[in-house]
Each structure stands twice: as C-alpha cells, then as structure tokens.
Design a protein around this nucleic acid. Sequence first.
DNA 1: TTGTACGCGTTATCAT
DNA 2: ATGATAACGCGTACAA
Lengths: 342, 342
Amino acid sequence: MRNINIKELAKTLNLSTSTVSRAFRDNSDISKETKDKILAAAKELNYQPNHYASNLREQRSKTIAVIVPELANNFFSQVIHGIEGVARARGYHILIYSTDDDYEKEVSFIRHLHNGRADGIIMSVSGEANDHNYLNELNQKRLPLVFFDRVYEDIITPRVITNDYESSFSAVQHLIKQGCKRIACLVINKNLSIGKTRMQGYLDALAKYDIPFDDRLIVDCTNSYKRNNVILKDMLKRLKPDGVFTSVERLAFATYYACNDLEVAIPEQVKVVGFSSLQIAPLLNPSLTTVTQPSTEIGVEAASLLFKMLEHPETVNINEKIVLGSKLVKRNSTALGELKKR
Amino acid sequence: MRNINIKELAKTLNLSTSTVSRAFRDNSDISKETKDKILAAAKELNYQPNHYASNLREQRSKTIAVIVPELANNFFSQVIHGIEGVARARGYHILIYSTDDDYEKEVSFIRHLHNGRADGIIMSVSGEANDHNYLNELNQKRLPLVFFDRVYEDIITPRVITNDYESSFSAVQHLIKQGCKRIACLVINKNLSIGKTRMQGYLDALAKYDIPFDDRLIVDCTNSYKRNNVILKDMLKRLKPDGVFTSVERLAFATYYACNDLEVAIPEQVKVVGFSSLQIAPLLNPSLTTVTQPSTEIGVEAASLLFKMLEHPETVNINEKIVLGSKLVKRNSTALGELKKR
DNA sequence: TTGTACGCGTTATCAT
DNA sequence: ATGATAACGCGTACAA
C-alpha cells in the first residue's frame, strides 16, 4: 500500500537521508558514484520523493490551475492543449476547473486554490460576474494570474487576447460587401468585455457603411441550445435579417439549426459568419465562414507568461497585454447569390 | 506573499493550534461557539489549511488524475466533463495529462503519479503500447486505476467501455443494407483492443451477408492529417470502395476531405459511417451517419467507479466491466441514391 | 472542551 | 562528500 520513503531507501543503502535526497537534486554536492548507486536503487525499489512532503518543504507545488467556462468546447480544449505542452516541458502539472459559466463556482475555485495547491492560475472568466473584486484580494496575496480571451477589464493582471475588435469589424464588413443590409449580431453576454468588444466592431462596421442600426438585431442569447433555438427562430421570422454575425461558435451552429428548421437557405437568404475554432468548418453545409482564433497559440502564450511571472516576477509588467491576430476565413456561408459548389 | 498559517491564526485567537484545526474538521469535539469564532476569523484573515501539509499528514490528496490520448477531441473533452462533475461533487480535484498517443509519455505520467500526487487514475490508453506490464507494478502498489474506452486487455482493472462490437456490426450492416458491397474499414491501430473489436464487428457483418473480404480494404491510418489524406486518396482511387466505415471520428473527417479532393460524391458514390461524438454531425455536408458513444456518461461511470474503489475498495470487483450502449444515428452520408434534401 | 507534543517525508543548514 | 538535525504546516493521541 504505502510507497517506500527516503528513510527506508537510505537504510537499505547504508546512507543518510540527506545523501539520498541530494541524489535527486541537481545542484548538490554528491559523488557521481553514490548518486548513480542511489538512483539505481530508487528505480529498483520504485522510490519517488513524496510530492507533498517536498512541496511542504519547498513552498511550491509545480502545479498550475486552468479555469475555463466549459470543457466540451473546441476553443478551450485547444487552448488547454497549448498550455499543456508548455507546462509539461517545465515539469509542471495542470489542474483543470470548469465553471460552466457559473460565477459562484469561479469564486469558489479561486478561493480554494489559495491553499498552496497551485502556484499560479490561467483563467478565462465566466460570463456572469458582476462583482469580481474578489480577484483583487488574490492579487494582494500575489498568486500569479493570467487571463485569456474572456477577461475582466477592471482587474489588473497580464492577459492574452485576440484582436477581437478588428476581427468583428472585418467579419461584418465582409457581410456588408457580400450585400447584407440587415445584419443580426448574436452575443451571449453583452456585459462581458468580449461581448462588448465584438459588438463594437459590429457597430462600427455598420456605421462606416452607413447602414442604419436596429437595436433589435442585437440578440442576447443563452447557453441553452433549446432556448437559443426559440430565440433565433423568432428573430429570423420577425426581423428577417439577411446576415448573421455570431460572437461565439455555438451561436453559429444554433443559427444553422434555426435556418434548417425554418427552411431559410444559407447563404442565399441569410449569410452567416462566426467566431469559431472548429477545424472542420469546411465540411459544414454550407462551409462556414469563420473568424478563427489561434487557440493553441493563446494557450502557449498564456502559459509562457505565467511561467515568466513565476520565475522572474520582476520582469513582468502587470499590465502586460498580448494581442494575437485572428483570421477571417471566407467560405460558402457568406458566398454570393447561387450556392457555389465546393 | 505567504498565507497565514494555523499557528498565527491560533495566536490571534488566543487558542491552540489543535483547537483551530478541529474547527475545520467535521467530527471533532469542539464547542459550537469557539468553532464559529474560529471560522469567522479564518474568513476574515483569509486562512485556509495548507493543502500539502494536510495531505502529508493524512496521506491522501483528494486529487485524481485523468490521462487521455489527446485533449482537442470532442470525445475526450466530453468524458472529462463527465468526470469533472462527479469529482467536483465530492470535493476532488482533477489533474489532466495528455499523452498525444505517445507511449513513453504514458509510462512517465503513470510513474510520476506514484508519489502521492493523486489518489487514483482514470485513463484511456495510448495507441502505441506494446509492453504495458508496467501497469502491473502499479496495481501491486494499489493505486486505483479505471480504464475507459481504450483499454489494455491484459491489465486487470475495472473499465468502462461501450458495446463496440455490436455498434460496428450494426454500422457495417447498415452500409450493406444501403447497398454497399465494397466497404473499407479505417482504423488507427489494429493492435489496440478498440481497433480489433471494431474491426471484428466489421468482419462479422461482412460474413453474415456473404460479402467477400478483401484485406486491402482494412486501412491502417495515422494521427497525421496529411498522411491520412494521402493514404485515403490512394485507397479511394485504387480500391474504389462504395462504403467507408471509420473506427474513429477523425478518419470520417479525413474521408470527407479526401472525397472532396477527388470529387467523389457522398453518399452517391461512397457512403460513410463513423464513430463520432460530434454534436454538429447533422450540420455536415452531407450530414454524417454516426455511431455515437455516450461520452459524458462514460466519464460519470468511470469516475463513480474510481470513487467506489477509493472509498469502499472491498466492494469493487477488480474485473468489473461496465458496458454502455452507443447509438447508430442514420443520416445522409449513408442515404440511398439521390441526395435527400435535409 | 481545550492544550501539548509528536510525526507525516522532505530539504536546507550546519557540522564533520 | 556525507551525516545529523531542524523546520515546512497540519492533525491526532493523549493529557489536563
């Protein structure tokens, strides 16, 4: 049941625990000979230094926590993949937390991470928060934190985001150039910065082309597939948009389903463009025009930034903001007139 | 920088550390009055028992490790989501490891988890392993392990799988009933049990309908999109199958891309069915006929099984095998003749 | 009901 | 180069 510990290993070898311990640390004074002997015996007996004892002693866990709004989502799993690569290379472990966009959970996770379990946190915030000042407490205690993608504007900590404003602007501009005049903008949460930024790009693109703004065309959606389906079908019937811009992937899918239900043809009757990390967007019917974020790279950057904070805190500007570029990939969901053959 | 510890909190309250400690444990003798006082002060001062000290003391980590072949994959992220829910409810934390189908990494992860970092492991194995006897050592040391989906047949430990044989059988049978006579079977690794089982279903379905077996139609694919594209295009040209059965999701997508490249029409010229957890399979062009595994439920079952092993080891049969049912969902990629309108 | 004291397994300091 | 020992922060047996 119990693993062997350093004492037993030391006794077996007729050495002191300190010597054995040294064999596992890189910088210590120890003869190559004894070190080899110790490591061999350790392997033989399957000894590994107990992680909790080491951490207690060293006051750090070599573990980082990643908090995301949802797990079963291409974007977030790709980001996590990026984080994983960087962390693994440094021998760090990753704890995963999913908030399901629940603010209570977010607060609770953060609070509980302050017991030494993690050395730092990478987080994309939940959508519901109103008062996120609890994060400032966290900052005082200096548990390093990096935001990515969905951030709280009023919390000062490094962040990795994409050029959302420019991306939405050019996505909507693309719709306009394809002839759309009544463009709906679907968001999940108008109050979250990411919703606001993407919405602003939409508004400014309309303005630039002198397209009158109809605030009913800004549609606040939910995380429930069912409710979105009702909301969108209603919107499509009542407002008859000829273009739809979705600020998150899920809403593009919801739009497809709603259009199918109503037998509205994409792109002939409605053109659709959406933020999406779906790798098989070309295989959709019709293939989906996307704003594609560099998701894995976001993870890599966020993790690198966090490790910089952990290893050389003095070199990190607490206001650091890394902005990566998304790509607008034009496909058939925004094609002109007749449906082009793929 | 440092958090407050139990000693300081005790001093602040003019109490002993044991009394403070007791306030955080449920079963100990302590007056409600002092307990409340302590908890209030703890909240005030933001005290939390140090996780590593507790774990060192109690010899358990309240943490489970989840090892998967890849993260950016619908199936696995949905399973993790299922695990997460169960673990969270019990106050457990989750460490995530992605092997990228690399056997070395798998062994290394497992080995390193034996230092107390985790109380148990849930794993879907990598595809490359030949000698996985290293897991038996693990079993001797009794770190509880649950397999899901991709398992090693020769390692005795509880597992959660789906009825793969029946599913592939009926998927292939479906192709046959739709008129296919030359059905390709795409697998990633013939040696991995999951590949074998799914292949067996394929073979037996052919046999049942007296369809001659051509072993060139069993195609061993890779994890590289590019190489698969070459392999599949070559196969489509040379062998001219009229049906394709893919044992993993990625190969269904690869088949779509290859057919697009060659302008082979699905389903008119080739019908496609594949294992897939993609929630938007209906939106593909054409919509994809899938064998859909109950991914979240797999996670829930696997986690529940692991917790049973942790909490009541004596009640668990080490040979336990939970088999969940997948669903064959027929869509247009296997439709008859003319392409049906959706 | 509360306090004292020890040990969980390590690593760092100091001595040899 | 190696060994003895204290300390990391907590939980519990035992004493009061």
